[in-house]
Nucleic acid binder design. Sequence first.
DNA 1: TCTGGGGTCCTAGGACCC
DNA 2: TCTGGGGTCCTAGGACCC
Length: 430
Amino acid sequence: MFALVDGNNFYCSCERVFQPRLQGRPLVVLSNNDGCAIARSNEAKDLGISMGAPYFKIRHLEREVGLVALSSNYPLYGDMSNRMMTLAAAMGPTQEIYSIDESFIGLDGVPDLARRGHAIRDRIHRWIGVPCGIGIGRTKTLAKLANHIAKTADRKPGTYPAELAKVCNLAALPAQDLDDVLAATDLGEVWGIGRRIGEQLRAAGLHTVLDVARMDPVVARRRWSVVLERTVRELQGQSCIALEDAPPAKKEIACTRSFGQVITDLDPLIEAVTEHASRAAQKLRQQGSVAAQLQVFAHTSPHRDDPQFSKATIVPLRRPTSDTAALVHAACAGMRSIYEPGYRLIKAGVILLDLSPVGVVQQELDLEPEPRDRSRLMAALDAVNDKYGRGTLKVASAGTAGARRQMTMKQSRRSADYTTDWDAIMIASA
DNA sequence: TCTGGGGTCCTAGGACCC
DNA sequence: TCTGGGGTCCTAGGACCC
């Protein structure tokens, strides 16, 4: 038995905790560069703003109906997330943190699920200020679905029985009631069924979750894939996806970003790639891994009517490493090899591939001297940047103020770091 | 003017082996 | 005239997730 605890409109809810005047108003949080809406309050959803809607297309709503759009503030959301996860963990003996706003809880041996769910939900709301929904089911897919129902029943009364609002335990429903709920839910809401597969299922005459739950798993596998078969079995109550209580090490680490403005020259591109490789190297050291290959890419905007350019290359590393200088060097060499002048580039990135734990090394013949061990230097680099802020110490090719302006993100409306910066802590007046 | 970033898993098909 | 059978490994691309 599993629960899924999920913060409602998480980024928007975090902002509202510290700016209560935003309660009840249509609110969106924007992606990097203030590009598009990645979180929407219920009021914003009611205005018809879709997930990922470009900001320039919804901007007029600010004037017309008082929409508020904020830049994203990840230090704030990350910290609020930690607090929420700590409280959600009390729901059961095991927890898998699935995303910044969601965690699965293993419920083996936990009695009185719905009542406990309500207690946890109330506590999160009271202590953290973030409303959330809790879904409970025999499998992770059913818990996800239950979570969707808990939120929808809360937001749109009448769509589902009122007692399923906020906390929904599908496992406690009588069979007929469960069928009714599944029949009232579009198959696109199922975890693992996206746009493409959803279309194909509809073309095959299936429309509701109940239709999918009644599929023959063998057919699901033959006509689609083992992925859909697993989803069907999960909907039927057979658990196929286990709880991962320890997060597995990443198999690749990416740092990619759109530029604040278009870039055509090599120099700023090299600066961007240096920065991305440096950040990726730091993430790599954090998880205690080394990379054997590095991929670097750059491309133009597919939304513009410009000559298009999109190239990537993989640079093998002489030895697996997590050394910033080595990774930056490889990334810059790769970028120089694919760069062509004359294109209006909008994005570049670095992806570290072929990762392995730092202790596992391939021995080799002693044909050339071992490079100097620079792990202590890297540890010092990380410690300084951790204490005094990202970018305090960096590789020289990262550049200085000049070209940097081109690359820095547009973030014109970012809130303060209320919970992670002493200077931004709010003062309550008596 | 203006459209995010970071991941995972699966599959098909090519290269290669005996 | 005519050209096997069985397997592994790797990669690119598709699909999905938040």
